[in-house]
Simulated assay, not measured.
Amino acid sequence: MLNLLVTGGGGQLGRSLAEVPGVAVHAPTSAELDVTSAGAVIEAVSSLAAPAVVINAAAYTAVDKAESEPARAFAVNADAPRVLAAACSSRNVPLIHVSTDYVFAGDATTPYDVDSPVGPQGTYGVTKLAGEDAVLGSGARSWVVRTSWVYSAYGSNFVKTMARLESSRETLSVVDDQRGAPTWAADLAAGLVELANRIAEGAAPASRILHCTGGGETTWFEFARAVFTELGADPDRVSPCTTADYPTPAKRPAYSVLSNASWVEAGLTPLRPWREALSAAFAAHDFRVSS
């Protein structure tokens, strides 16, 4: 059985990875494994029994807060992956590093391919791109998997926020001029485990950067209406607004849809369409419950 070390085990992706059957998952939380501690990271990688793969799901994801805490964001998103990759390289353990659509400028009109020019617009994106570069340049057997708009029944995310607001507000406005691809963490986790198994079996993709998101695309406004529908609420209670109507410290990409062509070309199973996944997620979890 494949042994997976998942950093960031307390996050929504880390918790979802721990639930994937058929693999032995060790998913320590940030309190149990501080990825900014070189000694702790080296010890964790060194203790892995073969066959093993490391999935780095640890990240500083507070996009707005990163603008005022750049040092912390760099420590978690750039320095920690560098140390983790070095540890994996020294032990010859494959590494899958999870990254984000925020490495792109967001000014495209068609889905970003893996080799599309990058151009992060904020500290979060800059630090995540630095993490990608550190991993890919480390000499480790490593792959970067970019994803977008991740949600789950765990932690804080858009779907849980909409479920909370539905019960506390009669109406709400959501931006309708930002497009992306919602991704259920459970589907992403299954895809990452499939990739890890392929790597462990010696059938790793030739491309070292892959995109893996829910199928299709939508706006936050349309996404919110779909959440209301799943809650049995009237979606017309959600009205559209513009990004300018809802200013934030960090600039959001207007268009951050990622092309999953690299994933399909690698022979990996594409994730289901985002709307279908959202229905499955609600069938599996109560998003109104804090978790």
Rank of each mutant, 00 (worst) to 15 (best):
P120T: 03
Q121V: 14
Q121R: 15
G122Y: 09
G122M: 14
T123A: 09
T123R: 14
Y124L: 07
Y124S: 06
Y124G: 04
V126L: 14
V126T: 13
T127F: 06
L129Y: 04
L129A: 09
A130S: 14
G131R: 06
E132G: 08
D133L: 15
A134P: 00
A134K: 03
A134E: 13
L136M: 09
G137T: 08
G137P: 02
G137N: 09
A140N: 10
A140C: 14
A140T: 14
R141W: 06
W143Y: 14
W143T: 07
W143P: 00
V145C: 03
R146G: 03
T147D: 07
S148A: 14
S148P: 00
Y151F: 15
Y151T: 05
S152T: 08
A153D: 14
Y154D: 15
Y154F: 15
G155H: 07
G155I: 05
G155Q: 11
S156Q: 15
S156K: 14
S156I: 14
N157M: 11
N157V: 01
N157I: 05
N157G: 10
N157Y: 10
N157P: 04
V159E: 04
K160W: 02
T161W: 13
M162C: 11
A163S: 12
R164Q: 13
R164V: 05
E166W: 03
S167R: 15
S167V: 10
S167M: 13
S167C: 08
S168H: 12
E170V: 12
T171R: 13
L172C: 03
L172W: 01
V174A: 01
V174T: 05
V175P: 00
V175Y: 00
V175H: 01
D177N: 09
D177Q: 01
R179F: 12
G180R: 06
A181C: 11
A181R: 02
W184L: 04
A186H: 06
A186T: 12
A186I: 06
D187P: 00
D187N: 09
L188G: 04
L188K: 03
A190P: 00
A190N: 02
G191Y: 06
G191P: 01
G191Q: 04
L192I: 11
L192T: 08
V193Y: 04
E194Q: 14
A196Y: 13
N197M: 14
N197T: 14
N197D: 13
R198E: 05
I199C: 10
A200F: 07
E201F: 06
E201K: 09
A203L: 10
A204S: 11
A204R: 09
A206H: 10
S207P: 02
S207W: 02
S207H: 06
R208L: 03
I209P: 00
L210R: 00
H211C: 08
H211A: 06
H211R: 11
C212S: 15
C212W: 06
C212T: 12
C212K: 07
T213P: 05
T213E: 04
G214R: 05
G216H: 02
E217Y: 05
T218G: 01
T219E: 08
T219I: 08
T219D: 09
W220H: 12
F221C: 13
F221I: 08
E222V: 02
E222S: 00
E222M: 01
F223T: 04
F223K: 07
F223I: 02
A224F: 00
A224E: 03
V227A: 00
V227T: 04
F228R: 13
F228T: 06
T229Y: 07
